[in-house]
Simulated scan of single mutants.
Amino acid sequence: MRTQVGIIGAGPAGLLLSHLLHLRGISSVVLERRSRAYVEQRVRAGVLEQGTVDTLVAAGVGARLLREGMPHGGVEIRYGGAAHRLDFADLLPGRRVTVYGQQEIVKDLIAARLAAGGDLRFEVEDVAVHGLEDRPYLTFGGRRLDCEVIAGCDGFHGVSRPSIPAGVLTVFERDYPFAWLGVLAEVAPSAEELVYGLSERGFALHSMRTPALSRFYLQVAAGDRIEDWPDERVWKELRLRLETVPGFTLRTGPVIEKIVTSLRSFVAEPMQYGRLYLAGDAAHIVPPTGAKGLNLAVADVRVLTEALARFFGTGSAELLDGYSAACLERVWRAQHFSWWMTTLTHELDTDGAYERRLRRAELDYVTSSRAGATVLAENYVG
């Protein structure tokens, strides 16, 4: 088999890259070890920056997003018994975020690629990377795929990054001393926008997926298991952390999914080696507090698409050679924002009275100063 770009991973990064390359007349084959049903049903982040929405719409895969997505013109931060809304429309006219589930983006991209005759291969076994310094190729299930470029879009635990020789990458990472309990419930959202709830009990986030599905997150101990959080305890804790302002009542309903996720910051530099280019979680991870993960993956793919279009169109490798440097500037900006949002909104076991007062002073600045609010809003919407 032969193609121009071999893509490992059929998540949003790999699928979007394949589609954007198709629009430029560049062939690709996407290899995914999971089933199509699995990747289409896997619930992940759903807060899209304005630039991500614009990219999907321009690529012709945004019709359902525009129809069913939930635009948000701001977010609310609750602490100290009061609610503080950051108005994006006022602070950054024309820019907002849109809530639309990652699994819905995956469905839209798969449908678009198959309709265009794209080569998507699911449940592929034993993918391996070869010949990165000379003639790259992939092997899988006893077959060989020759290609001119390999795109590693297979996430943190994929095979792409470990295929880079030892000593090439510099890794920066941080593990956080708590986890998130994610809850998907069959109940209409209790608020029109995302609500960040801060209290001495810990962090809570009220989000949504559709007008009939709500998504919640609770800060929990790093060693907690799903079994430690029966539905009754989940709803009790959400009320204690979110019903902190007058007039707000949390709606409850059947819980249809629970998952405990550790929080990590991770960057591998450079994001390329030979003819292998990493994108998305294969190269970097951010804590979900700032909703940057999916958006960073889309940003990587935009840069990589332009570089590949130049390479295959003119033979120039200039943009490909600069791919990592071009991406990492935004990656580190998002890393800082995600770290800052996490430390600003979460209780740490090591916090004393001094640390809590520092956090309160910064929250007061962000919610009362237009300059402070604009910094948060600008980073949040991208």
Rank of each mutant, 00 (worst) to 15 (best):
R275A: 14
T342R: 10
V30T: 11
M208H: 08
G322E: 14
A317R: 15
A112Q: 11
R360E: 13
M271L: 04
L358Q: 08
F266N: 08
Y38W: 11
C147N: 09
G290L: 08
R360M: 09
S28C: 00
Q219C: 13
E227T: 13
V267W: 03
R96V: 00
S214V: 14
V149C: 06
A128V: 10
G141H: 02
Y100V: 02
R113I: 11
V183N: 01
V331G: 01
R24I: 03
L48I: 01
L109S: 15
I105L: 15
F140L: 01
L138W: 02
I226V: 10
V286Q: 12
V106I: 15
V381S: 06
R264E: 04
G322K: 15
W340Q: 12
M208T: 13
R44D: 00
E49C: 01
R239G: 07
A83K: 14
Y196F: 14
G142E: 02
A309F: 04
L66E: 13
L238A: 13
W339A: 15
L205M: 11
A212W: 03
P211C: 09
T374L: 07
Y277R: 10
E378M: 00
V303H: 09
T350A: 11
E347M: 14
G46H: 07
N295G: 15
R33A: 08
R36P: 01
L194E: 00
S27N: 05
S18W: 00
A191M: 04
A353L: 15
R113Q: 13
H22T: 07
S262I: 06
G142C: 03
D231F: 09
A10V: 11
I105C: 12
A299C: 02
R275N: 14
Y217W: 12
G202K: 09
G62Y: 08
V168P: 01
R121H: 00
I77C: 05
L145I: 05
I8E: 13
S160G: 02
A309H: 15
M70C: 03
E123I: 00
R356N: 09
G293R: 11
A63P: 04
A37R: 14
Y380G: 07
V159W: 00
V366F: 02
V298S: 05
R144V: 06
M1K: 14
D108R: 08
E133K: 06
G182T: 01
T249Y: 01
L276G: 09
D175M: 01
E76G: 08
L184E: 08
S27A: 05
F203Q: 03
A116Q: 12
E193S: 07
G131W: 09
